[in-house]
Design a protein around this nucleic acid. Structure first.
Length: 462
RNA sequence: GGUCCCAUCGGCUAGCCAGGUUAGGCCACAGGCCUCUCAAGCCUGAAGCAGGGGUUCAAAUCCCCUUGGGACCA
């Protein structure tokens, strides 16, 4: 049974890189009919916070990455880590180190100055006596030999034991280091496959040594490349736009985000659009690339637009309701509005844009674009509006169809010696306040003839 | 400083493992068609194997070096 985990530290908002790692784990679990486990690595009590935990859970829920177990919290398992550290100590696989942080720091600096890699000198490794001083527990790394990491993405990676220092597993304050807690947890939680960011590659040999020392089976590893921001720098909290939920707030659909994230590093031939069931079926960790990818918003925009277009107005309405409300509008899913959505959705990239582009529907009074007003509410435009208004009166009680409207509009334009453009733009501006909108006849059908006349008259009465 | 990872259009990538392709797709970009505006849609275009050595009849593909980017160790 495949068991994978996503194990974020709640020291920041869930960003797109973390979300993608979670997605790969989740897909791997679902593909293999395994379990996806959520673990919160909050041993750094200083920097961890409840707010970030909530943010992570919310982000995963938004994407629909449901977990089968957890969330487990490392902060609740400290005793367990101490127990294992002591076990290693008693079995002679680890030892007490009495070196003070100051002493170590001094040595490190000297080493750096003379160009030697700063590594613990194993001073306490062979100490026999037990001193009554505070001590850290260090792992007794082998002095020679190689450690092979079998990586499902990168193949076999060889590390030399002599380059691995006797790393601390339990600090003198009783807190475990990352290496210890992660290995203990992965063993206890029976994790079979570890899929994580490539920033952990160098940690892996140390963890393998711990598995061996504890006599446990080594899981399979897969290190996925990092996601970079535009300038090819690292994705971090400093880049505001990397917080996953900011994309929800900007009006992106989780399905589009998922599709976007999975294609950052993973591919399946030339296919671009993947439904979630399809992903579960097709996903193979071996198809994940080795090189880091740059996060560019344009493709996400395109995907989001694609996914929005596929939605019916009825499906779309509840998704944009919230955005309208934030704009101070009291929306209702009226038939006319749903009709409008059908035509607005192909013009927008995000739900938020749909809301902004369709908000005019619910407004009683409009603000008219300045430039457009100057150009289209001129003498000709006002005449056209008058004629359109009277024309609409004649079709008021009829079932309006596009052909009738178009015929009427063209006749008006001809009679005034204007281009249809001028008439249409004047009407568009009167109905929406904007010079850019869905087709003019669709606007009339959406608002209804009566409301259209009212809006035109509001301009004429000014 | 040491160790490790990575390298195909501006971005995401297919092709690489099993050497022979006019190096393909998508986004973005440019031009055109459509057209009441803006989109969408359709057509066309520009654009890439980081560099250098090998191996080979033949290298994006295999090997080595350089360069560049990134990560970790604190």
């Amino acid at each position: 049974m495949v068991r994978v985990r996503f194990a974020p530290s709640p020291t920041g908002y869930l960003h797109v890189g973390g979300a993608r790692t979670a997605l790969f784990n989740w897909l791997y679990a679902r593909h293999h009919n395994g379990k996806f486990i959520l673990r919160i690595e909050d041993t750094d009590l200083e920097r961890s916070s409840e707010e970030f935990v909530k943010n992570i859970l919310e982000g995963l829920e938004w994407l629909g990455l449901n977990w089968d177990e957890g969330p487990y919290f490392q902060s609740k398992r400290l005793e367990r880590y101490r127990e294992i550290a002591n076990l290693l100590l008693e079995s002679g696989k680890a030892y007490r180190c009495y070196c003070s942080p100051e002493e170590l720091e001094r040595k490190r600096e000297t080493a750096l100055k003379s160009g030697i890699p700063p590594k613990y000198d194993r001073k306490c490794r062979n100490l026999k006596e037990i001193k009554p001083q505070p001590f850290a527990i260090r792992f007794k790394s082998p002095l020679e030999g190689t450690i092979m990491v079998k990586d499902m993405i990168r193949g076999e990676l060889i590390f030399y034991a002599e380059e691995i220092e006797d790393f601390v597993i339990l600090r003198s304050n009783g807190m475990p280091t990352y290496h210890l807690s992660v290995v203990v947890d992965d063993i206890d939680m029976r994790i079979t496959d570890i899929i994580r960011g490539e920033d952990h590659i160098n940690n892996t040999p140390k963890q393998i040594l711990l598995y061996e020392a504890l006599g446990k089976e080594i899981p399979k590893f897969a290190h996925v490349p990092l996601i970079l921001v535009e300038d090819r720098g690292r994705l971090s909290k400093r880049h505001g736009a990397t917080a996953l939920l900011s994309y929800r707030d900007e009006g992106y659909l989780p399905s589009a985000m998922l599709n976007f994230l999975v294609r950052l590093g993973w591919s399946h031939g030339d296919q671009e659009i993947f439904g979630i069931d399809e992903l579960i079926r097709l996903f193979d960790i071996k198809d994940v690339g080795k090189s880091p990818s740059v996060f560019k918003i344009e493709k996400l925009n395109w995907l989001n637009a694609e996914y929005m277009r596929k939605k019916t107005p009825e499906e779309l309405y509840p998704l944009i309701e919230g955005f309208l409300k934030k704009m101070g509008i009291n929306p209702k899913p009226e038939k006319g509005y749903l009709y409008l959505l059908e035509h607005v959705k192909i013009r927008a990239k995000t739900l938020k844009e749909v809301a902004e582009m369709s908000a005019f529907y619910f407004l009683r009074e409009l603000k008219y674009e300045e430039e457009g007003s100057k150009r289209f509410f001129d003498e000709n435009g006002i005449m056209a509006l008058k004629k359109v208004s009277s024309f609409l009166e004649t079709v008021k009680n009829e079932e309006v169809d596009e052909k009738t409207l178009e015929k009427g509009f063209r006749e008006i334009a001809d009679s005034l010696g204007l281009k249809l453009l001028h008439v249409a733009q004047a009407v568009r501006l009167a109905l929406t306040g904007r010079t850019v909108s869905p087709g003019i006849f669709d606007l009339i059908k959406s608002l209804g003839v009566e409301e259209s006349i009212r809006r035109i008259k509001m301009v004429l009465e000014k």
